[in-house]
Design a protein around this nucleic acid. Sequence first.
DNA 1: AAAACGGGGAT
DNA 2: ATCCCAGTTTT
Length: 366
Amino acid sequence: MEMKQSLYDKLQILEPEGVVLSDLDRLRAMERPLLSWYKENARVLPWREDPKPYRVWISEIMLQQTRVEAVKPYFARFMEALPDIQSLADVSEDELLKLWEGLGYYSRAKNLKKAAELLVAQYGGNLPASYEELKKLPGIGSYTAGAIASIAFGIPVPAVDGNVLRVISRVTGSKEDILKQSVKASVEEKLKAVMPQDSPSSYNQGLIEIGAVVCIPNGAPLCERCPLNSPCIARAKELTGVIPVKTPKKPRKLEDKTVMLLWQDGRVAIRKREDTGLLASLYEFPNAEGHLDETQLLLSLDIKEAKITSLPPSKHIFSHVEWYMIAYRIDLEEEPRGDYLWVTPEEIKKTYSLPGAFKAYTKLIR
DNA sequence: AAAACGGGGAT
DNA sequence: ATCCCAGTTTT
């Protein structure tokens, strides 16, 4: 049982700035300076110019795990090609993945289309103005549901991403591991309780913006410029180098691959990847596990001979695995084993979505 | 609760 | 060249 803290008790553990605040009081103290700061300092971003639900949705999905500067050109191109939910529902998967090529986390694109089809079939072609309904859509979790609900519809629900977790853990001086979902749930609950009911969009975006440009993830935060520096415990106790606390990531797996540029009559072979797993449904150059020599190469292609030249090796680092690739150019004189699409360099550039992992080799075929 | 899932910027 | 970033879905 918790006894309510008397003013006397609070004064016993006085901070330099004043009376000790509860977490909730500390969070309440953020509102005024946060909204004032955001009004003055909000970056001008394409999706903020016209925050209609579709644009907010697409931008928030693109911004998952992806930096603002990387998203900008993709967002512009996407809006031009697919200006509304109906066009997204109707687009072919290949065309959609081509629009997404290079952005990564390709399931985001596939989920967008799935959701668009659902919206057309069940929601009259509109995004629902409801946090709970938004959260049911594929690709939309608690953060994105909160972002769309608050930014596009003005619904007072929090939008807690990594930026917000960093800011809040620093302000409250929490040494809890911010990667734990229980911590995220707790922050969502607290913010829901204290956030202004009449300006959820600016409040949520302000918190995210501070995390992105002031209370930054790499290097020391710019506390002198932070509107929240007054209530911030991490700043007062010089804990910004410690907070946020995160569990260390485990080492990546290493994989050897042999990439084959198969040429025949001025065309090169590509194939479509599985529709699940890494780089699902994208195209790739034929490749094999391990580092094959020329004999093994001929064997795997089931051919007698070919003109084979070595290409430069390359490495690609994903979040959880590293590919160590060696490669060969193989000019064929007979049909190899395997189901391939024979395409021109021009078609690869314009039509087929190849992931960045193969960039060292797509470069070579122009 | 933990692992899978990219690509790019910071250092 | 290495480290870091961190929403959602799947296992």
